[in-house]
Amino acid sequence: MWRSILLKEWLKIRWFLAAALIVNLGFSIKIFLDIRSILSAEHAQMVWYQAVHLHTVFHHDMRYVPLLTGLTLAAAQFFPEILGRRMRIALHLPMARDGMMFFCLAFGLGVVGAIFLVDALFIHLTMRAYFPFEVAVSAVMTALPWFLAGVWGYLGAVAVLLETAWPRRVFFFLVFSVLIAMLYSGVGYGWLTPALPWLGALLLPAFLCVFESARRFQRGGA
């Protein structure tokens, strides 16, 4: 039964996943080329100085890409389900609603997470090629809130899409927007690192609250 759900989710997102991968890889390559060209134009020690002491974040251009990725995949997965309330088909399948939701979300989060893992790997390898490992590690830590924003964006978009009442939908949108905006506060590298355990812990309630949205979707009228 789970394989069927997997098939359905896969069919919905495959082209969007391909597009997301292309965009993410494209940005990763752009970052690599940017840094390479900066290093060919300036003395390496000056570029290091910018990175370490002036807090220049060389992969800054990438910061909204994970959020966009999360939003896109959530829409790809759940927009077809709310069109004509098509999720009624899945909700009637002989399996537990919460279990099915868990599986759909786990699939989506798995895909989103895998893309971010690739991003993180690219960032690390790029930075490691031109900078000491401290800088490479810090670059990944700096990107972590962006990835977190991608996951938040994914969960938030799912919850907003599944909500049936407009006032609640708007409220959900605002709440998730604030939480996501928090992940973009601060300047320079590693600014949010001390808050990451807290912001990361909030993923659990964000994940859980989608189940109520799904329940309301099921009971939410025609």
Binding site: K8, L11, K12, P80, G84, R85, R86, R88, I89, H92
Partner: peptide
């Protein structure tokens, strides 16, 4: 229970 939803709801992407 077999359900037929109004408008013959189906997974159009399949």
């Amino acid at each position: 229970v077999g359900l037929l939803h109004e408008g013959h709801l189906a997974y159009e992407f399949m």
